[in-house]
Amino acid sequence: MTALATVAFAIAAFAPAGLAADVTDIGYVDQAALSSIPSFLSANRQLAAYKAQLDRQFARQLRGVRDAGTQARIGQQYQNRLAQRQRDLFGPLFQRAQVAIASVASSKNLSVVVDKRIVVFGGQDVTGSVEQLLSGPGDPIPPVSSPPPSSVGYVDQAQIDTIPRLKAANDDFQKFQAAQQQQAQTKLRQAKNDAERQAVLKNYQATLADRQKQTIQPLVDQTRDAIADVAKKKGLLLVIDRSNLIYGGTDITSDVTTALK
């Protein structure tokens, strides 16, 4: 996750009053529970076996390789092959799960389904119904209509981070972080005891925090304000990140992107 996204989540936002609405149409799914469905377990086992095989190949390839560039190249090849296998194995399963979630949400008149991890209280748990549908024979049937308009909005933080000035700030911060990290590593190697090492670490963290406050925080504030403005105009109750959304919701990413440009 980028620095902007990280900081955005960490902000305690102020809630404007007066936009209350009915929230009985919010559902959630426990994705961890879904992963224990036989088809997912089987795919996981296949992936684990493939990874074990790939690990052995990787270890053989790396044996005796001392050059950092070659190590990185081999490592990248390894990651690519593993990612491709993941896509092959899980892609069809995810599509099926998506249809099942949409079908259940539609039958329960839910306008939005989110990840259980962000639900602290309330909402409708549709995990059991989705599990049942996925474990049953045949493919789940897609709903005949789109989800109803939802008072829960979402943004694709990753897409917002590609706005040139935000991206430039992020890239700049990452370069700064890499340089600081290198310096800190050198100092850590020279440190004579734990106290010195602690001091190096604290200094490193403080330097990064300062820099983040100076260069990233103002952009985070602007982004949050822009999201809140768009949300108010559209009468939304709250806005979450796309990564926490599973079904439905109101996408305001493009409105926010336009506002920030």
């Binding site: 936009l19 609405a21 929230v23 639900v119 809140a228």
Partner: peptide, 15 residues
Amino acid sequence: GVVVSNVVAPAGGVD
């Protein structure tokens, strides 16, 4: 009725 965490922007919800 519902409480969530990790909101990007709160809009009309109750903090």
